[in-house]
Write a protein that binds this DNA or RNA. Sequence first.
DNA 1: GGCGCCAGTGGGACCGTTACCACTCCCCGC
DNA 2: GCGGGGAGTGGTAACGGTCCCACTGGCGCC
Lengths: 352, 352
Amino acid sequence: MPDDPDRRQSTIKDVAERAGVSLSTVSRVVAGNYPVAQATRTRVQRAIEELNYVANTHARALGGGATRTVGFIVNDVRGPAFAEAVHGVEQEAARLGHICLVATTDGDPARELAAIRLMREQRAAAVFLIGGATDSAAYRARMADIARSLDAAGSRLVLCGRPPLGDGIPATAVEYDNEGGAYALTGFLVGRGHRRILYVGGDLTFTTTAGRVAGFRRAMADFGLPVDEGLFELGAQFTRAAGYERVSARLRGGRDFTAVFAETDVVAAGAMAAVFDAGLGVPEDVSVVGYDDIPLATDLRPALTTVRVPYEELGRAAVRAALERPAGRPEPHQMLGTHVIIRQSAGRPASA
Amino acid sequence: MPDDPDRRQSTIKDVAERAGVSLSTVSRVVAGNYPVAQATRTRVQRAIEELNYVANTHARALGGGATRTVGFIVNDVRGPAFAEAVHGVEQEAARLGHICLVATTDGDPARELAAIRLMREQRAAAVFLIGGATDSAAYRARMADIARSLDAAGSRLVLCGRPPLGDGIPATAVEYDNEGGAYALTGFLVGRGHRRILYVGGDLTFTTTAGRVAGFRRAMADFGLPVDEGLFELGAQFTRAAGYERVSARLRGGRDFTAVFAETDVVAAGAMAAVFDAGLGVPEDVSVVGYDDIPLATDLRPALTTVRVPYEELGRAAVRAALERPAGRPEPHQMLGTHVIIRQSAGRPASA
DNA sequence: GGCGCCAGTGGGACCGTTACCACTCCCCGC
DNA sequence: GCGGGGAGTGGTAACGGTCCCACTGGCGCC
């Protein structure tokens, strides 16, 4: 047995020779849907097993066209919310007979671009961009370009959890309601008597942040409460550490709020830790709420009041929109609903 | 503009025509390493940009052989520990210029098999199986088969977090030390004075469980303590709910242990919740320890004493082992170390 | 009994790219 | 002045499938 490093999988040709039939016949047996005599079929199938034959996707893709591959691009698979969305995409894609390519970007637009390029090289049937983005004219122009390129190649761009690009751009968006969820959650806090709420979140150019802040503001306005611009801690990373530091610093500077609206549950976990480390209680002294309803929210003590976001369904819906859409091409934009999950981390302020 | 549904990406041929050169020259420019006159190169590059040309991986793979694609197969990307490993694989693969295919199995061997088949169809350069497995003679035979098939095709099977298949089987294993970690953690509990420790974990046929239970037993033996076979709660799922239920049931039946060794942090979270719901305290009444050191461990209150497992490094090491291995083929099995992280969830038993 | 049809099969062309070989200059050295 | 060699380029045969077209019998129908 010579150890040639460039070994070869057996091919359809090997199978054909062994079974004593033509290439076409083997192809038909593998495909399964053409008329082949039972005897021939059996013979070919035996040859396939004996040779351990496995079809070559690349050859198939080259000839036929359709790839049965989709790609998804995500900030970081370790984020529990992203992980849920990824799971949804993966499950639904598998159900429809597609296999997934992944790439992570750490939020870097350059890496996002590079990842999209790779997906294009792979001729993915659809590309899913999962999670918010830093919005700008440049971003929109870039995405529009990409959407058109993908569309021209018979592929599809799907934005999951970020807003549509606008009419005429061949991209699908599947969102969940950041604005509405934040509105409801803020309303809940206000209902409990909070008037001064510290908002801890990301940069306003980030689509997710923009939506949640908008909902927050609208709720405050609707309830006739003033918004103190000094009570925004923006530009934070979506990490536990950032939540901890921002809230710690605020508490050191004098506690002029009764509740913390953390933009994600992970940030809320940091915020809660900061409150405890300042010798205060949650929710007695400071109420803390989050957003996303990741599993952690249940395990925090007190358990976190938050907004349930159907991330898995988001992923599934995105795949369905891209892959099950009939040939005629409507441009379905979907907006999934969210709702507040009331647990123990938010109560009435001491003053109320 | 006719809306033909089967549109075409521009190809190397289109580029060649537009730039007025041959296919070979375009190919050389794209590859980048052959001698091409500067003027020609520029002309071709312009054509590439104008046509928005993107190379077709499938055609490349068909001709050349090497794929620059790796596949990883995991129980569930939502598990924080898995997610870390997946992240490691993804990052390292990207660094080496490879793109990742993912598939999830929910622990179902049949789906694992199907996923491996898909990876084979894609001619992945390596296939990573991430996480423990249910061991059996059938499992080993199956894996050996797969390893040989993959090897015969010039690909590679890598087991991440499960034991090697044995000599002569062309598969690489990258493990972390389940036995040693459990030994150390048990030693820690014993050192604090615990003698009756409830072990909550999976099925003994599961490789991870087997390793951790073995370490637990060895530690008890080394410290001269008897092992009460009644203090094993095995066959549990690795979920919060399972941890909660198993420990709740035990507590209802009378508390005959002073500490809980939960096989994973997620199970530990459930265990802690059960202790609280029984009106007891952690660690005053019952100490709880976990395994994995996922982010949740920090956020639990009390913060969880656990075993740090370098999951991300596991993923990275696996990729390096598979992709950077020189042509001559050593069969490197690696065992990564673990260590105990002491936090607040384990103290001295009341009796001590 | 001749004709058409269809089930079953084989024979290519083609998909987009790379690898290899061949060819043409031009420059240099003897 | 001529041969050798290398830089720069073109031509073409793979790679492993699928798909379309063509061919062969056998059968039913008029």
